[in-house]
């Protein structure tokens, strides 16, 4: 240790100054991104964006109504496929899972969670697109569901574990069978947590682009049913931003703003919901 007191004080102040700079830099980047998307997005947003189909290449104007509906459809379906697995699987881990099997399930969930989303897209491609030989909304939503499952599994388990055991025991002591205890006592007490977790997992997959590139693909028109290619906001942002048309760039910013708002609302909302009730 350097014994010169004044140098040590200088080092102290300088080092913490650097850490404060790091924090300012990181938060600055966050606010810059939010502000930049807001400014460029607001200028580009109009009624047409929400209500019109994309115009043919080269024509200005039009909107992304089909992509907005497409994203809702893909994310909704992903929830229908993925949430039951995540929530019921998570219930098993929290309520019954002690031994080896649960360890492997948790491990598998971590593995899936770590798989790059584009690789998940490949698997959805080989499972759904390859057999029927064309891109489909179904394939896209299955890809998103695979990403959603580990997230909702772990969050469900976590929130169920927060329910105090005394509540379970008192219900059991009244003579309720365990399934009724879980269904009518444990679930209601963990409801806000589980639904927040579900909301967060949906918001997370709503911004996913990579797994949709070759599953849902894209579509410049309305897509009917589940077996046709379908447009989505993230993929539209990607294709519009790398295209050489100024009007497309403008619309990419508008789409980015809409997507960012969705994701931020879900995250801030989840935060507020969780703050209101916490177990100790």
């Amino acid at each position: 240790m350097n014994t010169n007191a004044s140098t040590r004080d200088v080092v102290n102040v300088a080092a913490f100054g650097v850490t404060a700079l790091c924090a300012a830099l990181t938060l600055g980047i966050l606010f810059f991104i939010l502000g930049y998307v807001l400014i460029h997005g607001i200028g580009a947003l109009n009624w047409d964006f929400f209500t019109k189909l994309p115009k043919p290449v080269g024509e200005n104007g039009g909107g992304m109504a089909n992509a907005i509906v497409g994203t809702a459809k893909l994310v909704g379906l992903a929830g229908v496929f993925g949430l039951p697995i995540g929530i019921l699987g998570g219930t098993y881990l929290a309520e019954y899972g002690r031994g080896r099997f649960s360890f492997f399930v948790r491990y598998a969930a971590d593995v899936i969670n770590g798989v790059p989303s584009i690789v998940v897209g490949i698997v959805a491609y080989t499972l759904v697109v390859m057999p029927v030989r064309h891109f489909s909304a179904l394939a896209g939503s299955i890809a998103l569901a695979m990403i959603l499952i580990p997230i909702s599994l772990r969050s469900t388990e976590e929130f169920l574990r927060l329910v105090p055991n005394a509540i379970r025991e008192s219900a059991l002591a009244l003579g309720l069978p365990q399934w009724k205890v879980i269904l009518f006592v444990v679930y209601p007490s963990a409801l806000s947590g589980i639904s927040t977790g579900a909301l967060l997992s949906l918001s997370r997959v709503s911004g996913e682009t990579a797994p949709l590139l070759f599953t849902a693909f894209g579509n410049r028109f309305w897509s009917s049913g589940l077996l046709n290619p379908i447009a989505s906001l993230p993929v539209m942002i990607f294709t519009y931003s790398i295209a050489p048309y100024d009007d497309w760039h403008r619309q990419a910013w508008a789409a980015a703003l809409v997507l960012l708002m969705l994701v931020l609302l879900a995250n801030v909302g989840a935060r507020l919901m969780l703050r209101r009730r916490t177990y100790t």
Binding site: G97, V105, A108, V111, I112, W179
Partner: peptide
């Protein structure tokens, strides 16, 4: 009681199967 437990077990098993499926599909294709 056993039915509910079996139901949740199946869904937990599905997660395990999904991880295996991802590896298998990538290898096979």
């Amino acid at each position: 009681d056993r039915l509910f437990r079996a139901l949740t077990f199946i869904f937990a098993l599905a997660v395990l199967a999904l991880a295996a499926l991802i590896a298998f599909e990538l290898y096979r294709n």
